[in-house]
Write a protein that binds this DNA or RNA. Structure first.
Lengths: 185, 185
DNA sequence: CGCAGTTGCCAACGCCCGTTGGCATACGAT
DNA sequence: ATCGTATGCCAACGGGCGTTGGCAACTGCG
C-alpha cells in the first residue's frame, strides 16, 4: 500500500503532534491515542501511516543538529560559537528534548542518540582538532557539558539555570567547551 | 495499620529491588509486578507497605549525596575534589541514575531533583563562595557539568565517555567545576 | 462510467498495568 | 491459651494501552 498526496496533511499533523508529545512527555507517556487526538486523526491511522509507535518515534527523532563548521571561525572563538549554537538553536527547538527524554526512557532512542553523537558532533570536533586520536574523547567531553546544560535548563528546569540569561550562560559554557575542543590535554 | 519488625526483610527487599529497577528502567517501565518479583514478594505487598507505586518511588529516591565539605579542602582543589566525589561516589551508586531517569520521566521526580539540588548542592556551594548572591548561579553551573557527565556516562553510555578512565575524566572536569565554583564571573 | 485503491472511522482484541478485597496463617501481647 | 493483628498469597477488578480488521466514502485512472 502506498500513500498519496491526499494524506500528506494528516501525516504531517501526526508527525508534528508526535514531536510535541515525545518532547513533552517522553516515549512511554506519549500515547498513540493522544498524538492522534492532537492531530485530529484516528489512532488507527497513526499505525497505518507509520507502522508502529516505535517507527513513529524513529521518524519524529530524525533531525539534523546543523552544527556550524567550526573550522571557519577563529580558533579562539570555537567554544563560544558552539555554546551559542547549542543553547540558542537547540533550546528553541524540541529536538534535544525529544532526544534526551527518549534516550533516557528507551534503549532504541539511546542508540539513536549515540548515532547522532557519532554522526554529527564527532566529525565537527575531529575536523577541528589537530589531535585526531583525541577527537572522540574531546567530543564526549563536549557532550557532557552541552547535554548537561540542556538537561538542567529545559528538562529538569533547575531555577537558577533557567533564570540565567542566554548570553551569560554562553559566557560560562564557552570557555569550558573551548578547553574541551582545543585545550591542552 | 502499623508494621512490625517481622516484615522488615520484605520491606527492605522491596526497596532494594525498586532502586535497581527504577535506576535501570525509569519510573514508567519499572513495574510493581517486576519489583515484587525481584524481591520475592507478592505485588499486593508492595502496595500494602508503600501505599502506591509513586510513594514507593519517593521512598526509593530518598538519598543523601553526602557531598564533602569543600570549605575544609584547599581552595585550589575544590573543583577536583568535587569532581572526584561526584564521579566516584555517584557513579558506583544507583542514586543518580534513579534521579535522572526518574526526573526525566516524572514531574514529581523532577521536583524531587530540584529539592536535592537546593537542599544539598546549593548549601555546599554557598558556604564556599565569597559571593553569596552568585551562589545559586554557580551551583546551577556545577549541576550542568556534573549531571551532564553522569548522563553521558551512565545513562546514555556514550562510548568515549564510558571508555575514559576515572582519573582522566576528573582531570578534565575538575578545572571546569573549579571555575564554576570560585572562578571570576 | 466503472473500478481499483486510498482514506477515514469504528469497534474490538489481547495484554499488562496498578490496585483492591478476602482469606487463611503465624505471631505476640495479655 | 486467647485474641487482636500483621503477614502473605490469590484472584480479580477496571482501565489504558498498541494494534488489528472490517466497512463506508471518496478519489482518480482507464
Amino acid at each position: 500500500m502506498a500513500f498519496t498526496d491526499r494524506s500528506r496533511p494528516a501525516r504531517d499533523a501526526i508527525l508534528a503532534a508526535a514531536r510535541r508529545r515525545f518532547a513533552d512527555e517522553g516515549y512511554d507517556r506519549a500515547t498513540v491515542r493522544a498524538i492522534a487526538g492532537d492531530a485530529g486523526v484516528d489512532p488507527s491511522m497513526v499505525i497505518r501511516y507509520f507502522g508502529s509507535k516505535r517507527e513513529l518515534f524513529t521518524a519524529a527523532a530524525e533531525f539534523d543538529l546543523r552544527l556550524p563548521d567550526l573550522t571557519r571561525v577563529p580558533r579562539a572563538d570555537v567554544g563560544r560559537t558552539l555554546a551559542e549554537h547549542l543553547l540558542l538553536r537547540w533550546g528553541s527547538d524540541d529536538a534535544l528534548a525529544i532526544m534526551l527524554r527518549g534516550a533516557v526512557t528507551d534503549d532504541a532512542a539511546a542508540e539513536r542518540t549515540r548515532e547522532i553523537f557519532a554522526g554529527q558532533l564527532l566529525p565537527v570536533v575531529a575536523a577541528l582538532t589537530g589531535d585526531p586520536a583525541g577527537a572522540p574523547e574531546r567530543a564526549g567531553l563536549v557532550a557532557t557539558q552541552a547535554l548537561g546544560a540542556v538537561l538542567c535548563r529545559y528538562v529538569l528546569r533547575l531555577p537558577p539555570v533557567v533564570a540565567l540569561p542566554d548570553a551569560e550562560l554562553v559566557g560560562w559554557l564557552g570557555p569550558t567547551l573551548q578547553r574541551y575542543l582545543v585545550g591542552e590535554r
